[in-house]
Design a protein around this nucleic acid. Sequence first.
DNA 1: ACCTGAACACCGTTCAAGT
DNA 2: ACCTGAACACCGTTCAAGT
Lengths: 188, 188
Amino acid sequence: MPAPAKVSPDSLRAAARRVLERDGQQGLTMQAVATELGVRAPSLYKHLRDRDALVRLVAEDIAVEIGELMARVLADEADAADAVRAIAASARRYAREHPHGYGLIFGPLPEAARARGSAMERSSAAILEAARRLSGEARALESARTITAWMHGFTSMELAGAFRLGGSVDDAWSYGLDHLVHGLAAPA
Amino acid sequence: MPAPAKVSPDSLRAAARRVLERDGQQGLTMQAVATELGVRAPSLYKHLRDRDALVRLVAEDIAVEIGELMARVLADEADAADAVRAIAASARRYAREHPHGYGLIFGPLPEAARARGSAMERSSAAILEAARRLSGEARALESARTITAWMHGFTSMELAGAFRLGGSVDDAWSYGLDHLVHGLAAPA
DNA sequence: ACCTGAACACCGTTCAAGT
DNA sequence: ACCTGAACACCGTTCAAGT
């Protein structure tokens, strides 16, 4: 008589997400996730190679979530500049609402723990499409990379508490976004 | 007869730096640093409150090093646009040469492990001065934050292997830097 | 004064044994 | 088939004991 399964791929992903959001990257341990599932740590090795695979599971869950968010945001905007603004704002908002999760996306993780390209594709696609509209086909990739770099850099610095010289961080956000959108717009 | 000291603040910092560069953030353990110093782990608690303090020690060492590098680079450039370009290039080069170290600067670390503002001041100062020359006094802070965000975002994405859609990453760097320098330059 | 061994709590991981 | 207990290696941390 087989033991009834207590862990499914979905329950595992959901439990890992919950632990990360609650306890951060340090707290995302095999034991904590096992406890969350009402199971002992060794059971998880039926589903995961090791802890890096656990971190990757969560990282990819978040990457997909951000991608879907950006795709939705893009679909709501007709104007190219508005689309870039809205996508950037949604990334910043997501980072604030899920600081531990956002830190998993471009942070310094072991290769085996990083989200793979397939999980990142959708968010790339939305930004690339917005950049294509803004800057034109020929420079779409470079434009998308410029937007993403600024957006991610600003957001991760804000999360790390790196803006310590006073002034309004919101002003700096608007200033950067305005200049980027302006500067990257292809001449009509 | 007191035991001769085997650990000094300088030897500790140097040993921690060596361990980080060799074994990465995960490998930067109390035991590894103790071994590097020819001592047992408990001895380190004479010098450090806990492991977060060890990580902070290295993070601040790197922040100061980057700050000095940028100050030197700035001093070599007369033109504002050239200064911004040279500072950005030096940050990117530093990140390539010290990937584990760079990851400590704006990465998702516990508050107690992050470099404090005092250690970050010099690099802020160089970028702020370059931005002041480029964009003028009134918008110097916002301009510096825009440059830093893009520079750090690009660099950390590159380290994380995030540019996976083909194309030339160097082209994207130049494209972004050109548009930034152009867009942020105050009208003459 | 500074360092060490011993100890404890906790984590990742393996594996033979349970049901 | 899936889960568990026991075990091992390793890490952070404390503290009494060594010199």
